[in-house]
Design a protein around this nucleic acid. Structure first.
Lengths: 223, 223
DNA sequence: GCCGTTTCGGATTCGACTTCTCCGTTTCCC
DNA sequence: GGGAAACGGAGAAGTCGAATCCGAAACGGC
């Protein structure tokens, strides 16, 4: 139960602390590469400790996830502040989503987190709401400034960007910054009169079969 | 093994034919509602036959899927022809994807099929290639006609629409024709100067939490 | 160093799920 | 009516990951 006498309540024994750190590092790595649903035993193995040690430190998968991504929310909020501080709201929006896409494209754990795990991880819903509020504010300002069409709402943007996020790791395997093209394209649209230069060149059709082969290969964690 | 004497080789006994039809109908229904990875036993149960009967008629899941969606490829090709026949390529493209989205939004089986199962079902890769060719031709003509920006390629469109397809069933649960809005929005873009009227009204933010909750809930079949 | 306590580790148990088969029974067709 | 084909549902077999158990090892105050 609670540390009874020999130990100060808040302190871990040295080996316990070391293992805890090893576990968090391993979890970060495994989540990043394989998504949030990697077998817990594998994380323990990667960390070089027994699985029971993992269960001892983190009774549930959610607890581990929450710990690993503890500071991600603050980062998102900071990016939101920064975006809202830009005088041109459209630019702020581009930068804001650029930040997010950069993370999501490179990390399957974050990807799972933003696209599916939100309702199951404590505190994540609040972060999601804050995100929506940021986007809503940026949209409103962009509409006032005349850079965004007036017949769209926050959900439109979120709904189109969410699924795209989900697909980004597949794109990243082809080229790590391919997400820039799709983000710009989605924001710009395809209409002839809306042409803006795209940041990076397109990929060829030879990737067609393979792309759809492993776009959704990893089973979504029900976490 | 092969029918030896009593039966003409190509003919099934009456009960066998009936059960086969029942199975196909049940499979169509279950695939449509639950995706391609429903337990085969459940399909048999739904059909009101024993599971062994299912395995007897369709030795593998893929065989069953192929049979159920046998004519879908022809339908897609026909839609492609029709789209290419339109004098305005942009309109043809809109109609073509409209047809596809309509199907995909209403049927999780077709959804799975186009977003993940392509490499595992015989004949599906060819259909996918035909689809890409159709889209490529439409894009080329639209670019010639000056209605589409010239710096995009087929894969750009496919890559943006694919993930969106995946998310459509979630949208359909809110409103069956919501896909129209997103398709139009994706094609139009968000820039102020590209504003075209959107066909249906947006959804409210109150769906935010729930949307991401079940957007990816169903585990992707590895089929 | 010693000793009681904490922590470790990994083999093992548990449980949920599907696929697929076996074989006695039923249905069909001639 | 009789022989072959088809049925059906229970259960065997395999997979996978979570969670536990308990003897062994590590720690740290004294």
């Amino acid at each position: 139960m609670a540390p009874s006498s020999a130990n100060p309540p808040g302190r871990l024994r040295r080996d316990a602390q070391r293992n805890r750190d090893l576990l968090l590092a391993a979890a970060r790595d495994m989540f990043s590469r394989h998504g949030l649903d990697v077998p817990l035993d594998q994380i323990a193995k990667e960390a070089g400790v027994g699985n029971a040690t993992l269960y001892r430190h983190f009774p549930t998968r959610e607890a581990l996830i929450a710990e690993v991504f503890a500071d991600a929310g603050a980062g998102l909020a900071a990016a939101g502040e920064e975006a809202l501080a830009a005088e041109d709201a459209w630019t702020g929006l581009e930068r804001y989503f650029g930040r997010i896409f950069e993370l999501v494209a490179a990390d399957r754990g974050i990807n799972d987190l933003v696209t599916q795990a939100i309702p199951t991880i404590p505190g994540m819903i609040e972060i999601s709401r804050g995100h929506a509020a940021t986007v809503g504010a940026l949209i409103a300002r962009a509409q006032e400034q005349g850079t965004m069409r007036r017949d769209v709402v926050t959900m439109d943007l979120l709904f189109l960007l969410g699924p795209l996020c989900r697909a980004l790791p597949a794109a990243s395997e082809l080229r790590p910054d391919l997400w820039r093209r799709y983000l710009a394209l989605l924001l710009d649209g395809f209409r002839a009169q809306a042409t803006h230069p795209l940041p990076v060149p397109p990929i060829g059709e030879e990737h067609l079969d393979r792309m759809f082969a492993d776009l959704w290969e990893a089973e979504p964690p029900e976490v």
